[in-house]
Design a protein around this nucleic acid. Structure first.
Lengths: 185, 185
DNA sequence: GTCTATATTGTGATAGAC
DNA sequence: GTCTATCACAATATAGAC
C-alpha cells in the first residue's frame, strides 16, 4: 500500500471524529463546526484537509464500500453454499460495524452510495437474496431468503453490542439461526 | 372519536405529503418549502395549519407510536407464547409500514420518540427480545431471540413490497421462519 | 496548519395585505 | 386561508493574516 511519508494523523483524526458524530447524529445532523470542535480547532482548519463535508464522508465510506461490493460479488457469482454466503455477510457486518449504522441512518448518504457503487445497494441485496432463494423460487422461498438475510444482518449487530470482535461461538449461532430460517422443516 | 365539524382535509393532505417526503428524504432532508411545493402553496400557508415543522412530525407519528407502545406492552407483559409475540410484531409492521422507514431513517427523530414514548425504543426492543429469550437465557438464546425479532421486522417489510396488505400465507411463512430461528433443532 | 473574519446560501418562521 | 415579502439564524465555505 503506498503511504505518504508526511504524517496523515490530523486527517485521520478528522475522519475518526466525523465517523462517530455522523453515526450518532447523522450526516445532515452533524455540522462542520461540530467536527471542528471535536478536533479542538476551527472550521477553517478543517478545510485545509478536506475540500468539503462530502469529501469527509467519502473518506469514511471508501473502504467499507469496496468491501461491500466484494462481498456482494462473491455471494452472487461465487457459487458458494448458503452458509458461506451468510457467514460472509456476518463477517462483513462485523468488520464494518462502525460505519454501518451511519449508512442506514441518513437518506442523503444514499446519493453517495449510488454514485460510488457498481450497483445500487438495494439491487445488490436483492441479488444476494435471490441467490439464497435458489433458481425459480416460490414466493415462500423468497420470504425465507429475506428472513435469513435479516438474521445475519441484525443478529450480528446485536451480538457485537459494544465489542469490536465477534466470537466464533456467536458467529456459529447466528449462521445456524439464519440457515434454519432459510430452510423449511 | 370526537371529530371537528370543519373540514380537516387540507391539514390531512399536509400530513400525507409530509409523510412521503420525510420517508424518502428524511426529516432533516425535507424542507418546509418542499412540503409547500407538494401541496401547491407557500410556506406561509403551511404555518396557518401547523405551528412548526416538528408539529407536522408529531401528527404523523402520534398514532403509530401509540400502536407501538401497545404492542410492546402486550408482548412483554401479556404472557403470550412466542408465536403470538412474533405475529403481533408482524401485524404492527404491516399496519405502520408507511411511517416505519421514516422512524428508522433519521437520527433527529429519536429525540421526538424519546419524549413521547413511555420507554425508549431500544429498551422496548430489548424487553421484547428478553421475553422471547425466556428466563435466565444463555448468550446463544439471546442471539436466537434477536434473530427471530430480525426476521419479523425485515421479512415483513420485504414481503409487503409496495403492497398495502400482507397475505395470510406470507404472514404464516414469516412467523414460521422466525420461530425456526428462535428454536434450536 | 491554523487562525479571525466574513461571504453566501438555505431554512424555519413571522408580518401584514387580501 | 392563502399570498408576498422578509427576518433571523445556522451552516457551508472562503479570504487572507500569521
Amino acid at each position: 500500500m503506498p503511504r505518504k511519508v508526511t504524517s496523515t494523523s490530523t486527517r485521520d483524526r478528522i475522519v475518526e471524529i466525523a465517523r462517530e458524530l455522523f453515526a450518532e447524529h447523522g450526516y445532515t445532523g452533524t455540522t462542520i463546526a461540530d467536527i471542528a470542535r471535536g478536533l479542538g480547532t476551527t472550521t477553517a482548519a478543517l478545510y485545509y484537509h478536506f475540500d468539503s463535508k462530502a469529501e469527509i464522508l467519502d473518506a469514511i465510506l471508501a473502504e467499507p464500500m469496496a468491501a461491500y461490493a466484494d462481498m456482494a460479488e462473491r455471494a452472487t457469482h461465487g457459487r458458494l453454499p448458503p452458509e458461506e454466503i451468510l457467514g460472509g455477510y456476518v463477517d462483513f457486518v462485523a468488520e464494518t460495524r462502525h460505519v454501518l449504522p451511519l449508512v442506514t441512518a441518513d437518506p442523503r448518504i444514499h446519493t453517495v452510495l449510488d454514485e460510488r457503487l457498481p450497483r445500487r445497494p438495494q439491487e445488490m441485496v436483492d441479488a444476494i437474496v435471490a441467490t439464497l432463494a435458489g433458481p425459480r423460487p416460490s414466493r415462500a422461498a423468497l420470504i425465507r431468503a429475506h428472513a435469513a438475510f435479516a438474521v445475519v444482518k441484525e443478529a450480528t449487530v446485536a451480538a457485537l453490542g459494544s465489542d469490536d470482535e465477534l466470537s466464533r461461538a456467536d458467529r456459529r449461532e447466528i449462521v445456524a439461526a439464519a440457515l434454519r430460517a432459510l430452510r423449511k422443516g
